[in-house]
Design a binder for these strands. Structure first.
Lengths: 187, 187, 187, 187
DNA sequence: TATGAATGAGTCTTCATTCAT
DNA sequence: CATGAATGAAGACTCATTCAT
């Protein structure tokens, strides 16, 4: 298990540092400290390896997104929890977040993986929350997918600016962002 | 001039269709209908070519963003114009928009190009508008770069969902999006 | 002993199905149901393994060729027996026959094995028969090796056509072939 | 045209010297004095290259076999011409002959090439000759494909012995072989 | 003995780049 | 300017072989 994980970790690191296109096997072997043939004991080829890393990342994020989620809490509390989790995940796991964000629309990732739910159904939870809010007359009536995309997009975009150090993200900013994304979709 | 433009157009097309990593010169020559050596009359190498296409795209977008911009109009009118322009640009030029969006944080594009202003200073216009709004007490006090990123991010994200046909974008949706992005940053 | 034989059988099968050049150890282990290291308990390397299979095949054919050979029988009877045995061996053991035929002149098989007699000296028996026939004035005077090669060659060639189902080989055809090969070398 | 021919010649040489399985591109480039990528300007891959060489060899042999063939000559004269040509071709072009002989039943050569006629239809000429002889009551009644295979096989086999210097082949031996192959199929 | 994960030299192949025309 | 045949460094991938268990 260790070798396999070494390889996947090295892959993610290299993608983050130089981009997927310049992840060569030579760099990978050196970084992961394995022999060049070892990868093929675990992955069919390079594409398979990258897709495995993608799947793992999606699942990890999916789990993280639902941390501390209380289905009984108020609508806003739940919304806040989901947005905070997303933001915090991005802040703590920049490599994974950027990888997911960059390649979710890339032809390199198998179509079935891109559209696939993670195993935690975090996406469905967000979707349900929006629809519930609309029924209550709290959230503005609009296509729920569009609304979903909108609140996600705010976090993604903010994170990308954060990564290149356009601004800091401490508690104050985080509160402002959550609030802004909430106001954006209110009636 | 024609050959050069042929090459750049083919480059953008191929990046859109298959992703930067699988754009080979062989495909490029075939698509652009030029000989394999011709490229080196115009570009130093592949990276240079891609960066030229990036620069061209940024300038084209920068110009588009300021279309019909009236510096004398009301704050909201100006905000709306900028957001509409961005959204419309993305809808009319999906290849260029996606290319810019995907590679603005990629190591493949030279750092100085990524942070560079386009020749129309559209970025500065947005920045100024935010600061003006904050001075007037209309726009919430927060880091102006963060605020800028936030309103941009909403548009980018919405467009990506649109490209994969998650939802339609007609006048109703467009109004909702502009409104949402405005409400997000109000005090 | 079983494991060793499993490996050798699998080797012959694979050579027959895909040709020597595409017999990889990976395929071999799977087919023979042994671990990848097991082979090295019995064979020094791949070449050694193939040469062992060659040697085994030669011996098996050598034994078969002399089945029912009666040194006291008439010249023609003995000739017929040898030719029939060769033909029947080829019909019953196509894998072994083809392997021997294909690699007897191949650089892959050690030179000393190619020219080596099998342990039954079947080759010498044929040779002696020819010389005896020439002394009796029945078989035409010619280089005995050439004559030997000639009668062998007829059988080999006929078998190859049979394998690709150019024609059937039942008793009638077999008689015709034996007869033809006999007439070919008569004075 | 020169580079392509250089590559094909080197390929045939290497196959002859070391066998198809050990023809590596590294050896090929060195021998043919071309850069490693050059092959791919002419051949899709290694298999394609080998098949091209096979096709060329078949055609060359096909042409050779009909040299001096006089359709008006006597049955025996025509038979003799065909057999002599085959034998002489093998003596003058051992590499081509052995390559054809070794790989005509190999899975490495495309099935359609193996069964394909050469462009000179030499195979058909032989076939027709046999049937004509049988109609005249000169050649023994038997499956014409079997008869064809038989007379071919004699030559092939004799040549293989010749290549490993089992015996010389000068005019005397040649006459004996032709005669033997003729007697083999007479009534 | 038997195993199979790990290895890395070696394989085929791709592709940006050069240069003579 | 425009071309494309030729190149070879670098890429992904294979596979016989080793060795700790």
């Amino acid at each position: 298990m260790s070798k396999k994980q070494d390889i996947m970790t090295a892959t993610l690191d290299l993608i983050h540092e130089e981009g997927l296109q310049s992840v060569t096997f030579a760099k990978l072997f050196k970084r992961a400290n394995v022999g060049s043939g070892t990868i093929y004991n675990y992955f069919a080829n390079k594409e398979d390896l990258v897709n495995e890393v993608y799947k793992e990342s999606r699942n990890q994020m999916g789990e993280y997104l639902l941390q501390g989620y209380d289905a009984e809490a108020s609508l806003y509390e739940r919304f806040k929890c989901l947005q905070m989790n997303r933001l915090r995940f991005g802040m703590h796991f920049p490599k994974r977040f950027l990888f997911i964000d960059s390649y979710s629309f890339s032809p390199y990732i198998a179509r079935e993986l891109r559209s696939a739910e993670d195993s935690y159904n975090s996406s469905q939870v967000v979707q349900d929350l929006i629809i519930e809010g609309q029924r209550q007359g709290v959230i503005k009536e609009m296509d729920s997918h569009l609304c979903h995309q909108l609140v996600h997009g705010i976090i993604s975009s903010i994170l990308k600016g954060y990564y290149v150090e356009k601004y800091p993200l401490n508690e104050l900013q985080i509160q402002q962002i959550i609030e802004a994304s909430w106001k954006a979709i209110l009636v």
